[in-house]
């Protein structure tokens, strides 16, 4: 216990050595054994449904920003309870969203919506969102073209 004695190390040096070894074990573990978890996360922006009352044509436009740790593909969009699998004919934009990047989409809709209402938009992705994130929906206003 006496730090002044020759050939012995003080308690503090012992603690420092012990903590250094622990830190090296943690770094080795994080570099060689584990890899970051794949987590899908995104933000939906500029989402609007446009309808043409004369022709009955309707489409949705939105931008998705990938805020997760892995690239994902938008497999389908869900508007309230209606599921539209992507890609569909006449769709503009890409369904592949890379980490940190944005993708803008314009998807024609099979039927029209009432202008002035709000429809909940939810994306089905591959890989999917975590179960606990599935309540996240983007309220989308319905507007008249022009």
């Amino acid at each position: 216990m006496n730090s002044k004695g020759g050939g012995t190390i003080s308690i503090t040096m012992g603690i420092v050595l012990c903590l250094l070894i622990c830190t090296m074990i943690i770094f080795a573990y994080s570099f060689f054994i584990v890899k970051p978890a794949e987590r899908v996360d995104y933000t939906v922006m500029q989402n609007t449904i446009y309808v043409n009352p004369n022709s009955g044509e309707a489409y949705i436009t939105f931008t998705v920003q990938n805020t997760g740790t892995v690239d994902f593909v938008i497999k389908a969009i869900v508007l309230d309870k209606e599921r539209i699998d992507l890609p569909v004919e006449g769709m503009l934009g890409t369904t592949i969203v890379k980490v940190g990047q944005r993708a803008a989409l314009r998807v024609p809709l099979p039927h029209t919506y009432e202008p002035g209402t709000v429809v909940n938009l939810f994306l089905i992705t591959d890989p999917p969102l975590l179960e606990a994130q599935k309540f996240i929906v983007a309220p989308t206003p319905v507007e008249v073209i022009g």
């Binding site: 603690i15 420092v16 903590l19 622990c22 830190t23 943690i26 573990y29 584990v34 978890a37 740790t69």
Partner: peptide
């Protein structure tokens, strides 16, 4: 655990080390 996929026991070991460093 949630973002770096550490096992819970390794996470415990890691936080104990961090606590030790702050204590020192």
């Amino acid at each position: 655990i949630a973002q770096y996929n550490f096992s819970p026991y390794m996470a415990l070991f890691s936080v104990m080390t961090i606590g030790g460093i702050i204590g020192l």
